[in-house]
């Protein structure tokens, strides 16, 4: 992996002339988890998709830059709420999808290491339909790690999981993605409070930074300060809606 860069996205977006978000500047610190928290429809996914170089349907005026002046979009790995596993391919094939799509030879050792790390070694040749929701997201995480990119974009990857599986996945992802510049888009204050090394709340009014808890992420689910932060974040979200 090349060193993880600082990222800055700065600008405004509109859909067919209707503003989606006003001029804003979001900075992602190198090698850190930034959680972008917001309700539905405020454009947080659009921000993530702009960084990833994906189609958003919005007109964006502004810039997305890295502090090392290298292009951004070809250094990202992307993980969405839908695990996006190909149903006809095995776990192993899904994990090495990127290499197959680029016509590169698959690094078998690395793939096996990652599958083992995600505790999926017994499921290597299974199809996604034979796995549980949590297992499927672990395959998606292994696929993301297999790409070995310095920037990782997570679009609510854990929101479809049950509470326990979600907490497990958060721990696993926080540990596995250490040292990368991570943007986690979420609507869950608890998730932002557990994982954010920097927490930004996105509302119609714009971006508001929030002081993350002092404990290192991933924080314990019953850490008092984390719970307080969670409450504070929820309050900010509700005030915006009111």
């Amino acid at each position: 992996m090349t060193p993880a860069p600082d990222l800055t996205i700065s600008g405004s977006a509109s859909i067919a002339g209707v503003p989606l978000f006003a001029p804003l500047t979001l900075s992602l610190a190198a090698g850190q988890w930034t959680c972008l928290l917001g309700g539905s429809g405020v454009g947080k996914t659009t921000v993530l998709r702009l960084i990833a170089g994906l189609e958003t349907g919005a007109d964006f005026i502004g810039s997305i830059t890295a502090n090392d002046a290298q292009p951004v979009a070809d250094r990202v790995a992307y993980m969405a709420q839908d695990d996006l596993l190909l149903p006809w391919a095995t776990v192993a094939q899904n994990v090495s999808l990127g290499a197959r799509l680029r016509g590169e030879t698959v690094n078998q050792d690395r793939r096996e290491r990652l599958i083992r790390r995600m505790r999926l070694q017994d499921h290597m040749s299974r199809k996604p339909s034979e796995l549980s929701g949590g297992q499927r997201q672990r395959v998606a995480l292994a696929r993301t790690l297999m790409e070995d990119r310095p920037i990782v974009l997570l679009d609510e990857p854990f929101s479809a999981l049950d509470a326990r599986t979600r907490a497990d996945m958060q721990d696993l992802a926080a540990e596995a993605l250490q040292g990368r510049t991570v943007l986690l888009v979420t609507h869950d204050p608890a998730e932002a409070a557990r994982l954010g090394q920097s927490i930004v709340v996105m509302t119609q009014a714009g971006l508001t930074s929030c002081q993350p808890p002092h404990a290192p992420a991933p924080r314990k689910v019953d850490d008092l300060e984390t719970l307080e932060t969670q409450g504070e974040l929820l309050r900010m979200l509700r005030e915006d809606a009111a």
């Binding site: 170089g53 996006l84 999808l97 799509l101």
Partner: peptide, 22 residues
């Protein structure tokens, strides 16, 4: 499904390879 195409795009897949593999 649009999600597959998004994923393929972040993986720098060529059009041809997306057609063939996805």
């Amino acid at each position: 499904p649009a999600g597959y195409l998004d994923l393929a795009r972040t993986m720098q897949a060529s059009k041809r390879s997306v057609l063939w593999h996805i």
